[in-house]
Nucleic acid binder design. Structure first.
Lengths: 368, 368
DNA sequence: AAATTAAGTGTGTGCGCACACATTTAAAGT
DNA sequence: ACTTTAAATGTGTGCGCACACACTTAATTT
């Protein structure tokens, strides 16, 4: 006797476990066992109950569920270690913000970090995490092979995960949040070359350390940049010079810039990491003025350089939002049992001296 | 006997009504009466209870509170009427998204609209809203005087409100979300003049209808724009011409552009509203090519113009986020009883042909 | 045939709160 | 002194769910 649900809060809309039980001709306990896959239910009844759940798209009431206080859930995050104000710090802040919002649902978050220049440290942490059997993981797949292995093992244990910052398409996860690196490199080129005097040198700087560690992001951005160059045949109009920056040897960096500029004036420079304030500093030291310098991320030091004019533009990627939305999607998937989108590119934000303050203040505000 | 709370979910952290009752030596009913200001509590006990609440910063458990199903709350929105794809449509989408998130807490949202070119229609709606005594209001204070009066009456009835789109500082509300119009005008100028050949004409277009209605926003943006012009003494280098666009008389608009261009070539144009696709269209009709045109908001028509190159940049203001965060703040204030920030400027987003797709897709995604 | 066991099923309690209702207490009226 | 009345306070129930536990039935075992 499939009596329709009638009166309950939510405008008589939402189905309750009790309703399902009535429809299936069983008790709530049986429905509960099916919902939580605790077994001890005869096949035919289980089938019938699942059918009703399916047909009515039943979702348990999250309020009641959390209030009933089923055991706490553990979310673990794994990102590179960072100092205050660095890029990863913002991701962490977003994760924390999400944590604050969902802690009422009995969810705790645990932070783990690794050395972004050392893949072993990453592997070590992933092992620890697997051993502790968390309920969900959000991590940044900086090292592709190790990440694939990690994701595989998580999948074996049925632990859902979210990727942030960079994407590894092969990984089957709840969601990815990060920038479309290729396009952001393309945009960097567009910004840099717009209005740039021809027949000059454009510098393409690299952080040696990051490259040797095989940073996925930086490589893709550079590729996007070069796509633009090729598309508009800019290598005919500009001398594009590459330079490797060694943080340990500043005088060498400065000398190198001087040398290039002496050969043909440098009108612009770009670096595909957040170290652009360093690049601007080297330019100043090399006494190469009026170069249009572009880089990534709204770190305090970069913002200072942007505001004093030594950096022309910053490309930002809403790191807090990546962390925040990543955790919220895990919550959505695990607790609310709703579907999510696999790949989510955050927009390429173009920052200028004039708008950077508001950009930062707004993001800060969102994280409170 | 102020026994400390010990065991409860939330890691023994959170205080419950029951705990407060025990501390104050009363029953939960009495505490409940104080919490809901239902009176019928002796002065001394009320004082004691409030003290305990204050000292421990007690916040009722939202899950339990909503589950217990106290009467539904009504949130009302009031924004200009719109067609699909217009600016206000995005604000509405943000409101709807927030509504979906909080409806489990027994909150319903009601939408009302007015004619943005007719202050009477605004006043009429506000009266209806006041008569229906909602629990909260989110509105766009397009007409300043009428909005002040509305806000005053809401205050009298103790109904909290949120402003979106434009700010009226005198209004005492839960929050404002919108762009810093002055700064966005300033940024528009920066974008427009960067790399613009000197000794040319720059067109400053206005929607006649919007101006005659006294649009707060557009006026402030223009002011910001002119601040930049003054600051960098650009009126020496460019002929800045104003033009009023009459949507009813397109040939006149086109003629006017032609005439100005004939006098001195037009290198750039800006309009401080979302009608920039119209402006670009008039330019095309007037056969004035290569002008750098800048305008506001990522409406489909503007995006099309941006992508085909007839518009150089769009300045966007995250309208969905305004609606979304506005409603969430009302929820925060009323249901979660948390404090909020009064003035929240959304960032000035600079859109280019290359990044607009991701920008829109991301926002769309957020609104699902 | 009685006792044991396992599989399947139902019942009861509490999470923290809101609200209706019952009860006590004090003040006022007869 | 006894009722009436109002003010102050306490008690009980249910929101929807999770989980421990009690219970039933039928298949074994002794």
């Amino acid at each position: 006797m499939t009596k329709n649900i009638t009166e309950n809060s939510y405008g008589g809309q939402r189905l309750r476990i009790k309703d399902i039980a009535r429809m299936a001709g069983v008790s709530v306990g049986t429905v509960d066992r099916v919902l939580h896959k605790r077994g001890k239910v005869s096949e035919d009844k289980e089938k019938k109950i699942l059918e009703i759940i399916e047909q009515n798209n039943f979702k348990p009431n999250v309020l009641a569920s959390s209030l009933a206080g089923r055991g706490a859930r553990r979310f673990v995050s794994l990102i590179p270690s960072f100092e205050s104000g660095e890029y990863w710090n913002y991701i962490q802040q977003g994760i924390d913000k999400a944590q604050r919002e969902i802690k009422i649902h009995n969810i705790v978050t645990e932070h783990r970090t690794f050395d972004q220049y050392d893949s072993d440290s990453f592997a070590t942490e992933t092992k620890k995490i697997l051993a502790s059997s968390p309920d969900a993981v959000i991590f940044s797949p900086v090292f592709i092979d190790e990440s694939l292995e990690f994701a595989q093992k998580l999948d074996d244990k049925n632990i859902p995960c979210v990727l942030v910052d960079s994407n590894v398409e092969e990984i089957d996860c709840v969601a990815y949040y990060g920038q479309h690196s290729l396009k952001s490199g393309y945009t960097a080129a567009q910004l840099l070359f717009s209005g740039l005097p021809e027949n000059t040198t454009v510098l393409l700087a690299r952080s040696a350390r990051l490259y040797s560690a095989g940073s996925n992001q930086a490589i893709l951005r550079e590729k996007g940049f070069m796509n633009y160059v090729r598309e508009y045949k800019l290598d005919n109009k500009y001398a594009i010079e590459r330079i490797e920056l060694h943080s340990g040897n500043q005088p060498a960096n400065i000398r190198r810039i001087k040398k290039i500029a002496a050969h043909k004036p440098i009108s612009g420079a770009v670096i595909f990491s957040s170290k652009v304030h360093r690049l601007a500093y080297y330019f100043a030291q090399a006494r190469v003025a009026n170069a249009k310098i572009i880089g990534y991320d709204e770190l305090p030091k970069n913002v200072a350089a942007l505001k004093d004019g030594s950096v022309a533009n910053l490309i930002a990627q809403r790191p807090e939002m990546q962390g925040y939305l990543g955790v919220k999607d895990l919550f959505k998937a695990i607790v609310q049992k709703q579907s999510t989108h696999r790949t989510n590119y955050v927009p390429v934000d173009i920052l200028t001296k004039e708008i950077v303050d508001e950009y930062i203040e707004f993001n800060q505000r969102l994280n409170e």
